[in-house]
Simulated scan of single mutants.
Amino acid sequence: MIQRLTLAAAFAAAFFMPREKSLLRPAQTVLSNQFFGDSPLNKDFGAYFQKAKSIDSSVNTRGIAMQAWAASYRAAHEAKLQQQISRRQFFIKNF
């Protein structure tokens, strides 16, 4: 059975992030920086392809370079989301 978030649950998840999740932000940032050396969020396809070719000469969708990039990109988005949530929590506490 698929569970759907209600508006109240989504609000709670967005503004009252558990402490454990906020502690993971530095680890997510480190993981996100592993592919390029910095955040992959501001990179274009050319930068990805050049780096991917240096990892694996046969760049394909199931290759090791693509898996490394996907993990890095996913972690970067998670770290960015956690940072935004942390800012919102700070704003709500100090409002």
Score class of each variant (00 low, 15 high):
A68H: 02
R87Q: 14
K21L: 13
Q84W: 11
N60L: 06
I2R: 14
Q28K: 14
L31S: 07
R19C: 01
Q67G: 04
F36W: 05
I92T: 05
A52G: 08
I55W: 01
L23F: 07
A47K: 12
D38V: 03
L81F: 06
L81N: 09
Q34W: 00
M17K: 12
N33F: 02
H77Q: 15
R88Y: 11
A65F: 04
W69C: 01
L5C: 01
A10H: 07
S32D: 06
F95M: 13
A10Q: 13
G63Q: 03
K51N: 04
Q67K: 15
I2V: 13
K51V: 04
H77P: 00
R4E: 12
A47V: 02
R87W: 10
R25W: 05
V59Y: 11
A13F: 08
S86M: 10
F45A: 10
A47F: 00
F11A: 14
N33D: 15
F11C: 05
I55P: 03
M1A: 14
L23A: 14
M17D: 01
Q89M: 15
I85S: 08
F35K: 06
Q50L: 14
D56G: 02
I92C: 03
Y73H: 05
A79E: 07
Q3A: 05
T29D: 06
S72I: 02
F35W: 08
N33T: 07
L7M: 08
F16S: 14
Q67D: 10
A68Y: 00
P26M: 04
F45K: 09
F91D: 09
